[in-house]
Amino acid sequence: MPPPDLAQIERLLYDEADCLDRADLDSWFELYTEDSDYWMPVSPDQNDPHRHISLFYDNRLMMEIRRRNFGHEYAASMEYPIRCSHIISNIRIVSADDNSSECRVTSNFQAIVYYKDQNVYAGKYTHDLVCRGGTYRIKHKRVDLINCDAEQGNLVIYL
């Protein structure tokens, strides 16, 4: 089998970044599988999202609830424009299964999030991707902020 298609994977990561840049969670959500989750640990090298607190750990259910709450007129924290700029680099396929239907991709990111103030986030992404019918989707995403254990303000959008 040929190795995973890096160009296709890069396009997926850029598409995801574009959805988040536009704060379009409905389109973002479509890039994820039905059994997906999104994790932002609060400790470096954290290995457990269930018995250890995280900044984010959304299963599909919480993604559904969050996107319905996002921008809600009754939510005080949502009454501000949210605009982001994500830069992704150093994209590497670190592992893949034999038939290239699943692979793990790591990358570096920097995200500027304009939400009340201009906020800067940086760190490493780990994406677990699955390929079905020639198209990759995201099964699991882990976001390791370089300052994950620092004091944080409101985190109102996925990074």
Binding site: M40, H50, R51, H52, I53, S54, L55, F56, Y57, M62, I65, R66, N69, A75, A76, S77, E79, Q152, G153, N154, L155, V156
Partner: peptide, 26 residues
């Protein structure tokens, strides 16, 4: 039991929670 404590805290008390950020904004 700890898992429920953590789930509660993540949904309510975290920076990305569904409750805390609206309190904070107020």
């Amino acid at each position: 039991m700890l898992e429920r404590t953590i789930l509660y805290s993540r949904l309510i008390n975290s920076s990305s929670g569904m409750v805390g950020p609206d309190d904070l904004d107020c």
